[in-house]
């Protein structure tokens, strides 16, 4: 127990203070305000592996390590699509996962978002389309933002998720939220 406490104290807090310019800081604060307005306190993410090679999963795990301080942005991963605001989908969609992906999408309450992750999620990647691969995520469910990379780094994933809140759809959802017409 003492050893554990000593280790925790020795390492301390390693979350990286993002060195931001005043403009960037303003943008970050605005994003956090948007998350708060659209979703209440947090943006909840459900990850779905629709047939990836598991490379993107390694970076999703990395995004949750202490360096990136994901929950500091008000973003967290949840265990059920019914608790989620956003689906983070990896892989070319295998034909065997098409149904499961559609059903998971349907289980997410409105307003909902989809981020397609990695080259495969964006366009089928090296696996392409074939007898067993349906290719891009957008061929199966609607996609709001794509994050390319093989695999995309945690930083790229995070900025992809944050980009989402600057899309026209986010603006209209925010508008409804402001008017108290959120479709829940």
């Amino acid at each position: 127990m003492l050893r554990t406490l000593k280790q925790i104290a020795r390492i301390g807090i390693i979350s990286e203070p993002v060195s931001l310019t005043a403009a960037e800081r303003g943008e970050r604060d605005a994003l956090q305000e948007k998350i708060r307005r659209i979703y209440g306190r947090a943006l909840c993410i459900r990850h779905v592996d629709a047939g990836s090679c598991n490379g993107c999963e390694l970076e999703i795990h990395a995004l949750n390590n202490p360096y990136y301080n994901l929950e500091g942005y008000g973003i967290k991963f949840v265990a059920s699509p019914r608790h989620a605001d956003l689906l983070l989908v990896t892989g070319p969609v295998s034909r065997h996962m098409q149904d499961a992906l559609r059903r998971t999408y349907e289980a997410v309450p409105e307003p909902k978002w989809v981020v397609a992750l990695g080259d495969c999620g964006c366009n089928g990647g090296l696996f392409g389309c074939g007898y067993a691969s349906a290719g891009a995520v957008s061929d199966v469910i609607p996609v709001d933002v794509t994050v390319p990379g093989c695999p995309p780094s945690p930083g790229a994933i995070l900025s992809g998720i944050l980009t989402l809140l600057n899309t026209p759809r986010a603006a209209s959802v925010q508008e409804s939220a402001n008017q108290g017409q959120q479709p829940h």
């Binding site: 592996d49 047939g51 892989g91 295998s94 065997h96 996962m97 696996f127 074939g130 067993a132």
Partner: peptide, 11 residues
């Protein structure tokens, strides 16, 4: 299993 079958050998 087989959910992630994407036809690698054919590819």
């Amino acid at each position: 299993f087989g959910y992630a079958h994407k036809g690698i050998e054919k590819r």
